[in-house]
Design a protein around this nucleic acid. Sequence first.
DNA 1: GGCTGCCTCAACGTATACATTAACGGCCAC
DNA 2: GTGGCCGTTAATGTATACGTTGAGGCAGCC
Lengths: 226, 226
Amino acid sequence: MNAKTERAAGSLVDAAYAGIRRRILDNRWAPGHQALEQALALELGMSRTPVREALIRLANEGLVEVVPRHGMRVLPVSPSDMQEIYEILTSLEAMAAELVARRAPAAAELAPLEKASRDMDKALKKDDLDAWAEADERYHRHLVELCGNRKLAAIVYNYWDRAHRARMFTLRLRPKPVDSTREHLAVVEAIRRGDAVAARELHRAHRERGSRELTEILSRYRLSQV
Amino acid sequence: MNAKTERAAGSLVDAAYAGIRRRILDNRWAPGHQALEQALALELGMSRTPVREALIRLANEGLVEVVPRHGMRVLPVSPSDMQEIYEILTSLEAMAAELVARRAPAAAELAPLEKASRDMDKALKKDDLDAWAEADERYHRHLVELCGNRKLAAIVYNYWDRAHRARMFTLRLRPKPVDSTREHLAVVEAIRRGDAVAARELHRAHRERGSRELTEILSRYRLSQV
DNA sequence: GGCTGCCTCAACGTATACATTAACGGCCAC
DNA sequence: GTGGCCGTTAATGTATACGTTGAGGCAGCC
């Protein structure tokens, strides 16, 4: 990706934000990586001003830290960070499932959830973990979209970003996620019945299980940060 | 508050952030209020640069919107915003209560919760609604602090800020909050028992009731925004 | 040899300069 | 009178300038 491509977005601030964020999520800049404002400006082909403004956004979103005299630093995600993040996601996504059930959406709106779940199974049978992760993310994303609470969705997306690297990293270390599909479909079924409490609790249990597995892996492999 | 006082904080950016935020939360700048960057800079006694950087933070936090050519605009909070916010707070604070119960805190850590609850009762008996609101906030704040999840706490604080004006506005329109104290103490009791699920569900019920009352008031008084 | 204090330098925070561009008002045609 | 076009102007986005200050190195002292 060259500077010209990154400029495509409206403003240089947006370009800087997108460029830096991409580099972090793609793990091109590992956790702990530091870069001075001037260096960033040079790499992104702009002056320090838009870089600074992008860094403020990224710092607010918890992806980087700005240390005076040391530039920005890509924040690592420790196991305890992951636990905190999963507590937040568990709580908010469970609420999302409840809200979806209360809204009693049309069958067409639920179809993508089922398709995503089926795709997870297919991917699993082919041992294609990347496709599995994509379908899993699609399921969760659609669920959160359907709940109608945009602010809640925005928080969830933000924390997904923060946990992204760790998820990618543990994807191949964890046991085959054979239970996820069934749990997803159980949530959908509860939504279809209009059973908001069941939807909430089933989704909570689903996330809690995922959280436990992740935590266990991180501690087993002594991954102090990702 | 003059410019000099606001400069007290370390950087001008912090001063601008604090100054603008204060004006909004105190309702000196009503929802919808607009101000140009240059005007803000003049009022705060600094140049546009730190003002712009503060506005980015405030916009991220949802207090203002930056519209090119029209400067910043203080965002109103509509009833549907309030509903979204309360859904988030209900879910996260319930999780916080659960986490506190799981941590099995020492009695000394729970004492401030009980004191805050007692202060709410006292304030109510004296018909001092401001003192009631302060004690109520103190209870909720301490609960969220105790849960140990800093990121969760940060989200909660942010959304409290957004809902602050509406809470202050409806404080004197709502029925006397006679149930709150009992509900708070029930949560504390569940925490003391180590009954995490009960703590979570009691707190959820507490917030859901508050949310219902608030929503009802906003619609009864046709408050389309605060 | 290790530690402390000074000095240098560069990174940052802030101010200012400047080109761009959209809002607004006025003017003209109908 | 009304609607549309054009020019003016000011607000913004970005670049650049500049003073301040803290980090790191070096020398001198214990």
